[in-house]
Amino acid sequence: MSLLTLEGIRVSLEGRSVIERADLAIEPGAVVGLLGPNGAGKSSLLRVACGLQRVDAGAVRLEGQDLSTAQSRWKARRMAFMPQEGGAPPRMGLGDLVALGRLPWGETGQTARQHAAVRFALSATGLVDLADRPASSLSGGERARMFLARTLAVDARVILVDEPVAALDPAHALSVMRILRDVAAQGRAVVVVLHDLTLAARFCDRLVLMTRGRILADGRPDEVLTDERIARAYHVRARWLGETPVPWEIIAHSDEDA
Protein backbone atom coordinates (compact mmCIF):
# COMPACT_ATOMS: atom_id res chain seq x y z
CA MET A 1 0.00 0.00 0.00
CA SER A 2 1.34 3.39 -1.00
CA LEU A 3 1.64 6.25 1.49
CA LEU A 4 -0.42 8.65 -0.61
CA THR A 5 -2.58 7.75 -3.61
CA LEU A 6 -4.64 9.87 -5.97
CA GLU A 7 -7.21 7.88 -7.94
CA GLY A 8 -9.10 9.14 -10.96
CA ILE A 9 -8.92 12.78 -9.96
CA ARG A 10 -10.99 15.22 -11.99
CA VAL A 11 -11.17 18.93 -11.12
CA SER A 12 -12.82 21.90 -12.75
CA LEU A 13 -12.62 25.53 -11.65
CA GLU A 14 -15.42 27.90 -12.62
CA GLY A 15 -16.62 25.54 -15.30
CA ARG A 16 -13.19 25.04 -16.87
CA SER A 17 -11.61 21.64 -16.62
CA VAL A 18 -8.24 21.88 -14.85
CA ILE A 19 -7.46 18.22 -14.26
CA GLU A 20 -8.96 15.79 -16.73
CA ARG A 21 -7.86 12.63 -15.07
CA ALA A 22 -4.90 11.89 -12.83
CA ASP A 23 -3.74 8.80 -10.96
CA LEU A 24 -0.68 8.91 -8.77
CA ALA A 25 0.86 6.82 -6.01
CA ILE A 26 3.54 8.30 -3.77
CA GLU A 27 6.00 6.19 -1.81
CA PRO A 28 8.11 7.28 1.17
CA GLY A 29 11.83 7.98 0.84
CA ALA A 30 11.73 9.70 -2.53
CA VAL A 31 11.57 13.19 -4.02
CA VAL A 32 8.88 13.34 -6.69
CA GLY A 33 9.11 16.28 -9.09
CA LEU A 34 5.86 17.54 -10.58
CA LEU A 35 6.61 19.14 -13.97
CA GLY A 36 4.66 20.77 -16.73
CA PRO A 37 3.98 24.08 -18.42
CA ASN A 38 1.96 26.86 -16.80
CA GLY A 39 -1.67 25.86 -16.52
CA ALA A 40 -0.96 22.13 -16.77
CA GLY A 41 -2.65 21.54 -13.40
CA LYS A 42 0.43 20.93 -11.22
CA SER A 43 -0.53 23.29 -8.40
CA SER A 44 -4.12 22.11 -8.52
CA LEU A 45 -3.00 18.51 -8.23
CA LEU A 46 -0.82 19.40 -5.24
CA ARG A 47 -3.77 21.15 -3.55
CA VAL A 48 -5.97 18.14 -4.26
CA ALA A 49 -3.36 15.90 -2.65
CA CYS A 50 -3.46 18.11 0.43
CA GLY A 51 -7.25 18.14 0.60
CA LEU A 52 -7.42 21.87 -0.13
CA GLN A 53 -9.18 21.48 -3.45
CA ARG A 54 -12.58 19.91 -3.99
CA VAL A 55 -12.60 17.21 -6.67
CA ASP A 56 -15.37 16.49 -9.16
CA ALA A 57 -14.42 12.83 -9.17
CA GLY A 58 -11.82 10.56 -7.67
CA ALA A 59 -10.39 10.06 -4.21
CA VAL A 60 -7.23 10.82 -2.26
CA ARG A 61 -6.00 8.24 0.26
CA LEU A 62 -3.44 8.87 2.94
CA GLU A 63 -2.17 5.70 4.61
CA GLY A 64 -5.15 4.02 3.02
CA GLN A 65 -7.71 6.36 4.55
CA ASP A 66 -9.98 8.50 2.39
CA LEU A 67 -9.09 12.16 2.97
CA SER A 68 -12.67 13.37 2.53
CA THR A 69 -13.70 11.45 5.64
CA ALA A 70 -10.47 11.81 7.60
CA GLN A 71 -10.26 14.07 10.61
CA SER A 72 -8.61 17.36 9.64
CA ARG A 73 -6.15 17.25 12.50
CA TRP A 74 -5.13 13.64 11.83
CA LYS A 75 -4.44 14.64 8.23
CA ALA A 76 -2.61 17.85 9.23
CA ARG A 77 -0.11 15.90 11.35
CA ARG A 78 0.78 13.59 8.48
CA MET A 79 0.92 16.00 5.58
CA ALA A 80 2.56 19.43 5.38
CA PHE A 81 1.94 21.93 2.61
CA MET A 82 4.06 24.85 1.47
CA PRO A 83 2.41 27.14 -1.08
CA GLN A 84 4.12 29.40 -3.54
CA GLU A 85 5.39 32.49 -1.78
CA GLY A 86 3.50 35.70 -2.32
CA GLY A 87 2.46 38.90 -0.62
CA ALA A 88 4.22 40.83 2.10
CA PRO A 89 6.22 38.70 4.55
CA PRO A 90 4.80 38.47 8.09
CA ARG A 91 6.52 40.55 10.77
CA MET A 92 6.89 37.76 13.31
CA GLY A 93 10.25 36.53 14.50
CA LEU A 94 11.71 33.72 12.38
CA GLY A 95 11.79 31.25 15.28
CA ASP A 96 8.16 32.01 16.23
CA LEU A 97 7.08 31.61 12.64
CA VAL A 98 8.79 28.24 12.24
CA ALA A 99 7.16 27.14 15.50
CA LEU A 100 3.75 27.69 13.90
CA GLY A 101 4.42 24.37 12.16
CA ARG A 102 3.61 22.71 15.49
CA LEU A 103 0.03 24.02 15.49
CA PRO A 104 -1.47 20.74 14.17
CA TRP A 105 -0.14 19.02 17.28
CA GLY A 106 -1.95 21.43 19.58
CA GLU A 107 1.16 21.79 21.69
CA THR A 108 1.02 24.56 24.24
CA GLY A 109 4.11 25.82 25.92
CA GLN A 110 7.66 24.96 25.18
CA THR A 111 7.37 21.20 25.36
CA ALA A 112 10.46 19.16 24.70
CA ARG A 113 8.92 17.70 21.57
CA GLN A 114 8.01 21.07 20.15
CA HIS A 115 11.46 22.34 20.94
CA ALA A 116 13.09 19.36 19.25
CA ALA A 117 10.95 19.62 16.12
CA VAL A 118 11.60 23.35 15.71
CA ARG A 119 15.28 22.86 16.42
CA PHE A 120 15.48 20.12 13.80
CA ALA A 121 13.69 22.26 11.21
CA LEU A 122 15.99 25.23 11.89
CA SER A 123 19.16 23.19 11.67
CA ALA A 124 18.03 21.29 8.56
CA THR A 125 17.56 24.63 6.83
CA GLY A 126 20.65 26.28 8.33
CA LEU A 127 18.66 28.98 10.12
CA VAL A 128 19.63 28.35 13.75
CA ASP A 129 21.59 31.57 13.96
CA LEU A 130 18.79 33.66 12.51
CA ALA A 131 16.03 32.43 14.86
CA ASP A 132 15.64 35.78 16.60
CA ARG A 133 15.52 37.91 13.46
CA PRO A 134 12.17 39.36 12.32
CA ALA A 135 10.98 37.51 9.25
CA SER A 136 10.48 40.76 7.37
CA SER A 137 14.20 41.54 7.55
CA LEU A 138 15.33 38.35 5.78
CA SER A 139 16.60 38.05 2.23
CA GLY A 140 14.56 36.17 -0.36
CA GLY A 141 16.67 33.05 -0.01
CA GLU A 142 16.52 33.09 3.78
CA ARG A 143 12.76 33.61 3.60
CA ALA A 144 12.31 30.61 1.30
CA ARG A 145 14.27 28.47 3.75
CA MET A 146 12.20 29.88 6.64
CA PHE A 147 8.93 28.77 5.03
CA LEU A 148 10.50 25.40 4.29
CA ALA A 149 11.56 25.14 7.94
CA ARG A 150 7.97 25.90 9.01
CA THR A 151 6.82 23.05 6.76
CA LEU A 152 9.44 20.67 8.16
CA ALA A 153 8.50 21.58 11.74
CA VAL A 154 5.19 19.79 11.25
CA ASP A 155 7.21 16.56 11.25
CA ALA A 156 4.87 15.15 8.60
CA ARG A 157 5.40 11.98 6.55
CA VAL A 158 4.27 13.68 3.36
CA ILE A 159 5.63 17.07 2.35
CA LEU A 160 4.03 18.92 -0.55
CA VAL A 161 5.93 21.94 -1.87
CA ASP A 162 4.80 24.30 -4.61
CA GLU A 163 7.61 25.97 -6.62
CA PRO A 164 10.04 26.59 -3.76
CA VAL A 165 12.92 27.74 -5.98
CA ALA A 166 11.09 29.90 -8.51
CA ALA A 167 12.51 33.18 -7.19
CA LEU A 168 15.88 32.01 -5.90
CA ASP A 169 19.44 32.46 -7.14
CA PRO A 170 21.32 29.26 -8.09
CA ALA A 171 23.05 28.82 -4.74
CA HIS A 172 19.82 29.14 -2.75
CA ALA A 173 17.98 26.95 -5.22
CA LEU A 174 20.61 24.24 -4.82
CA SER A 175 20.48 24.49 -1.05
CA VAL A 176 16.67 24.16 -0.99
CA MET A 177 16.77 21.12 -3.29
CA ARG A 178 19.45 19.55 -1.13
CA ILE A 179 17.31 20.06 1.99
CA LEU A 180 14.41 18.32 0.24
CA ARG A 181 16.67 15.38 -0.65
CA ASP A 182 17.84 15.09 2.96
CA VAL A 183 14.25 15.14 4.17
CA ALA A 184 13.29 12.37 1.75
CA ALA A 185 16.29 10.36 2.90
CA GLN A 186 14.72 10.25 6.38
CA GLY A 187 11.87 8.16 4.96
CA ARG A 188 9.42 10.95 4.15
CA ALA A 189 7.68 11.47 0.85
CA VAL A 190 8.40 14.79 -0.88
CA VAL A 191 6.34 16.07 -3.79
CA VAL A 192 7.72 19.26 -5.32
CA VAL A 193 6.41 21.37 -8.19
CA LEU A 194 9.33 22.57 -10.33
CA HIS A 195 9.92 24.55 -13.50
CA ASP A 196 13.66 24.05 -13.65
CA LEU A 197 14.30 20.89 -15.72
CA THR A 198 17.96 20.83 -14.73
CA LEU A 199 17.22 20.78 -11.01
CA ALA A 200 14.41 18.30 -11.60
CA ALA A 201 16.66 15.91 -13.49
CA ARG A 202 19.36 16.18 -10.86
CA PHE A 203 17.52 16.07 -7.52
CA CYS A 204 14.32 14.09 -8.13
CA ASP A 205 14.03 10.33 -7.86
CA ARG A 206 10.94 10.36 -9.98
CA LEU A 207 9.28 12.88 -12.27
CA VAL A 208 5.62 13.35 -13.16
CA LEU A 209 5.16 15.41 -16.32
CA MET A 210 1.76 17.00 -16.74
CA THR A 211 0.20 18.84 -19.63
CA ARG A 212 -3.37 20.06 -20.14
CA GLY A 213 -4.67 18.45 -17.00
CA ARG A 214 -3.31 15.01 -17.74
CA ILE A 215 -0.25 13.08 -16.70
CA LEU A 216 1.90 12.70 -19.78
CA ALA A 217 4.67 10.65 -18.25
CA ASP A 218 5.61 9.26 -14.86
CA GLY A 219 8.92 7.58 -14.09
CA ARG A 220 12.66 8.00 -13.59
CA PRO A 221 14.03 11.35 -14.82
CA ASP A 222 15.87 9.80 -17.74
CA GLU A 223 12.68 8.02 -18.83
CA VAL A 224 10.47 11.09 -18.57
CA LEU A 225 12.73 13.82 -19.92
CA THR A 226 13.05 12.84 -23.56
CA ASP A 227 13.34 15.30 -26.44
CA GLU A 228 9.97 14.21 -27.73
CA ARG A 229 8.16 14.68 -24.40
CA ILE A 230 9.83 18.04 -23.62
CA ALA A 231 8.76 19.29 -27.02
CA ARG A 232 5.24 18.02 -26.54
CA ALA A 233 4.77 19.44 -23.06
CA TYR A 234 6.69 22.73 -23.23
CA HIS A 235 6.98 23.42 -26.96
CA VAL A 236 10.73 23.90 -26.65
CA ARG A 237 13.69 22.05 -28.04
CA ALA A 238 16.27 21.06 -25.43
CA ARG A 239 19.98 20.67 -25.60
CA TRP A 240 21.69 18.13 -23.42
CA LEU A 241 24.52 18.81 -21.04
CA GLY A 242 25.45 15.31 -20.06
CA GLU A 243 22.34 13.82 -18.55
CA THR A 244 20.39 17.04 -17.98
CA PRO A 245 18.32 18.87 -20.55
CA VAL A 246 18.50 22.66 -21.01
CA PRO A 247 15.58 24.36 -22.81
CA TRP A 248 17.17 25.98 -25.86
CA GLU A 249 14.64 27.32 -28.34
CA ILE A 250 10.89 27.63 -28.84
CA ILE A 251 9.32 25.43 -31.44
CA ALA A 252 6.04 26.10 -33.24
CA HIS A 253 2.83 25.36 -31.34
CA SER A 254 1.43 22.05 -32.38
CA ASP A 255 -1.89 20.60 -31.37
CA GLU A 256 -0.87 17.01 -31.77
CA ASP A 257 -2.02 16.13 -28.26
CA ALA A 258 -5.28 18.09 -28.35
Binding site: R73, F81, R150
Partner: peptide, 13 residues
Protein backbone atom coordinates in the same frame (compact mmCIF):
# COMPACT_ATOMS: atom_id res chain seq x y z
CA UNK B 1 -0.41 34.55 9.29
CA UNK B 2 0.81 32.02 6.70
CA UNK B 3 -2.27 32.37 4.51
CA UNK B 4 -5.58 30.53 4.21
CA UNK B 5 -4.19 27.48 2.38
CA UNK B 6 -1.52 26.80 4.97
CA UNK B 7 -3.99 27.36 7.82
CA UNK B 8 -6.34 24.83 6.26
CA UNK B 9 -3.47 22.42 5.61
CA UNK B 10 -2.69 22.64 9.32
CA UNK B 11 -6.14 21.32 10.13
CA UNK B 12 -8.07 24.55 10.77
CA UNK B 13 -11.56 24.72 9.33
Amino acid sequence: VLGEDVARSMGFI
